[in-house]
Simulated assay, not measured.
Amino acid sequence: MNSSNDLKAVGPRIRMMMPRLTPLEVRVVETVFGLRDFSEDTALKDIATEAGVSEAMVVKITKKLGFSGYRDFRSAVSNYNKLPTAEMHQELSVEDSSREIIQKVFRTSIHALEETLAILDVDAFDRAADLLMKAGQRDFYGVGGSAQIARDVAHKFLRIGVRAGVQDDSHMMLMSASLLGADDVAVAFSHSGNTTAVIDAVQLARRSGARTIAITNYGGSPLAQIADIVLCSTAQGSPLMGENAAARIAQLNILDALFVAVAQRNYDAAEKNLEKTMSAVASKRKDKIV
């Protein structure tokens, strides 16, 4: 890996593979990332000893993560750890001052944006924009915080005349999915990619003939495995903030870009509809102080 973007993608790609690892394999990976002095000089036997596994097990895990072996893994991770953005992620502490909290929260979001940009699949992005532009019906599925992201995106699309239905109830998702057809698209929002209600709805949408898009933080998740197109965010977890906070920022940026790409595909119609929708709510704004 030579380019900056390739290096920035090392951490995210390993994190996205974590759902495919066994608890023991996860422990070994966490052992590596927990070593502050991990470098090109760190011996295989040292990692094996620290994690309490055999050297063969460590090599097997590195290959499962997509590397040719331990040396390739060691080189990629040690160079990734040297990146300026790798230093941005700092754990929040209950002893932090307000200034420290602000800096850490902002840096965590910047870090998530930098790394999501590095791993974003542009071909998948273009296919998603084409599907959303041409679809007859668009179903957005999400629960909890993911439903809020779905609503935000649906609101943006409505402004340019691209209508989407948002479902956050498992029964409503299934009923809506059952009515989709070959000209329709279902977009599933799930940070973990493990949300049963969303997965069930996507499976039914597929059986109904619709194309499917997944917005998730884990490319190896069950949701990502069944979707036609996957757009991944990436964010490191934090005991106080969790993963969802930074991932939400990254996902909203992916979807803002998707919104622009869809509008670009029929710019005249988008501009005309934007003027209509803005005019429709103009009377509800109080731009001038009387």
Rank of each mutant, 00 (worst) to 15 (best):
K45N: 09
D46C: 02
I47F: 01
I47E: 02
I47L: 00
I47Y: 03
T49L: 06
E50N: 04
A51H: 09
A51F: 06
V53I: 13
E55D: 12
E55T: 15
A56D: 07
M57D: 06
M57Y: 09
M57S: 14
V58G: 01
V58M: 00
V59H: 00
K60D: 11
K60M: 06
K60I: 00
I61S: 01
T62R: 08
K64V: 00
K64M: 13
F67N: 04
F67I: 03
S68Q: 14
S68P: 04
S68T: 11
G69P: 10
G69W: 12
Y70E: 07
Y70V: 06
D72S: 14
D72P: 03
R74C: 05
R74G: 03
S75H: 15
S75L: 04
A76F: 13
A76Y: 01
S78P: 07
S78N: 07
N79Q: 15
N81R: 15
K82N: 15
K82Y: 09
K82M: 05
K82W: 01
L83N: 06
P84T: 00
A86W: 03
E87N: 15
M88A: 12
H89C: 12
H89Y: 15
H89G: 02
Q90T: 12
E91I: 01
E91A: 06
E91R: 13
E91L: 11
L92D: 07
E95I: 00
D96P: 05
D96V: 14
S97L: 06
S97W: 08
S97K: 13
R99N: 11
E100W: 03
E100D: 14
I101F: 09
I101H: 04
I101P: 02
I101K: 04
I102N: 03
I102P: 02
Q103D: 14
Q103L: 10
Q103F: 09
Q103S: 07
K104T: 10
K104F: 10
K104G: 10
K104Y: 07
V105C: 01
F106Y: 14
F106V: 15
F106H: 15
R107A: 05
R107S: 09
T108L: 08
I110W: 08
H111P: 08
H111G: 04
A112H: 09
A112I: 04
L113I: 07
E114H: 13
E115L: 11
I119K: 08
L120D: 01
D121W: 13
V122E: 06
V122W: 11
V122P: 00
V122A: 00
D123K: 14
D123V: 06
D123N: 13
A124R: 12
A124N: 12
F125T: 03
F125K: 05
D126R: 13
D126H: 10
R127I: 10
A128Q: 12
A129R: 05
D130W: 05
D130P: 04
L131Q: 12
L132T: 05
L132Y: 00
L132F: 06
K134Y: 14
A135E: 09
G136H: 15
Q137W: 03
R138N: 00
R138G: 04
D139L: 15
